[in-house]
Simulated scan of single mutants.
Amino acid sequence: MLFDTHLHIVDRQALDYPWLSGAGDLNQDNLYDDYARDALRCGISNVLHMEVDVAPARIDDETNYVREISRRAGSLVRGVIAACRPEENGFADYLERSLADPFVKGFRRVLHVAADDTAARPLFRENIRRLSATRMSFDLCVFPYQFETVLALVDHCPDVCFILDHCANPPIKDGMDDVWRNGIVEFSRRPNVTAKISGVIAYGDLENWSVDSLRPYVEHTIESFGWDRVVWGSDWPVCTLGGGLTPWVAATHALTSGCSAEERDKLYQANAKRIWPM
């Protein structure tokens, strides 16, 4: 069974998404029921909802919207990775409220859509450090040109559990380069970072990607981090741009076909259950 650590639900009637107007084919509703139909067929048993960069004033509304979905009979949703703004003074109070809410499992602030110096700002760094020794994780969604700044953030917060989304957004379409390859190794040297095997089909040829085109990037990430520090995610609905959930799950099984049952289980679900207890 698979634990999906990276589902996005988009409901434009319920929430506001300022970025969607420039998102091309993603500018549409992508609702839980559409996801769940394929997820159940693919053997997905547990899901964390990943924030979708709603308008800042709607962050709490997004969490509550997903909470209601989790209360439906048979729902796969077990919690949320909530949006946040660590660059702002209100983060400390937001963290305290979130720590009292067991449905919130962690936070994400997408850094490649923020100003380049965001992760280097003292307030941002100190606010992320507030997560030290809490149950909250922090997802890192960054591009290779940001690696140096984000590695410094990780070093500043050695007791924070960081999750590196999408194999750190590798340049699959352009081909392997040393910046990404060496960056993965550097992140893996930080024991408080876990890599998420997700999202990679979005960085290749969307219409003609293959398992072999993804393999070097997925295998390098897993070899660098080891089986105890990798988790799996669908990145739905972004994965629909490259064929959908079912092809990505099939690719995942193909990419790990030569691995042991214990190794596959760690990636598929066991590590996620340890990081985010239900």
Score class of each variant (00 low, 15 high):
N89G: 11
C84M: 04
I81D: 00
E87H: 11
S98M: 07
L99G: 04
N89C: 10
E96F: 03
G79H: 01
G90K: 12
S98Q: 09
L95Y: 04
A92Q: 14
E88M: 11
L95I: 03
S75Y: 08
P86N: 09
A73T: 15
E96D: 10
F91P: 11
R97T: 05
A100R: 10
S98V: 04
R78N: 03
P86H: 05
A92S: 14
V80I: 06
E87N: 12
L99V: 05
R72H: 15
A92H: 14
A82F: 01
A73E: 15
L76W: 02
A82R: 08
R72I: 13
P86R: 01
R78H: 06
R78C: 02
R85T: 11
R72T: 15
G90V: 13
V80F: 01
E88Q: 14
V80Q: 00
Y94C: 07
R85M: 09
G90F: 09
A73Q: 14
F103A: 07
D93C: 05
R85E: 12
A92N: 10
E96V: 06
R78S: 02
A83G: 14
V80H: 00
R72A: 14
D93H: 12
A82V: 03
S75C: 09
S98E: 05
A83I: 01
L76S: 03
F91V: 12
G79P: 00
D101F: 02
P86Y: 03
F103V: 08
P102E: 05
R72C: 15
N89D: 15
L95D: 04
R78F: 00
R85F: 09
F91I: 11
P102Q: 07
R85D: 09
G79W: 00
R78I: 01
G90Q: 06
P102N: 04
D101N: 09
E88D: 15
L76G: 06
E87W: 07
R97I: 03
V77M: 01
S98C: 13
I81W: 00
N89H: 13
N89M: 12
S75D: 09
R72N: 15
E88V: 12
E96Q: 14
N89Y: 13
E88H: 11
S98P: 05
S98L: 04
Y94W: 14
A92W: 06
A92I: 13
R71P: 05
S75N: 12
N89F: 08
I81Q: 00
E88I: 03
S75T: 11
E96M: 07
D93R: 12
G90A: 15
D93G: 12
N89T: 15
L95A: 05
G79I: 01
G79L: 02
S98K: 08
G79C: 02
S75F: 15
A100Q: 11
E87Q: 14
G74Y: 11
L76K: 02
E87C: 08
S75K: 07
D101M: 05
D93N: 11
L99D: 05
G79F: 00
A92F: 10
S98F: 03
A82K: 05
G74C: 12
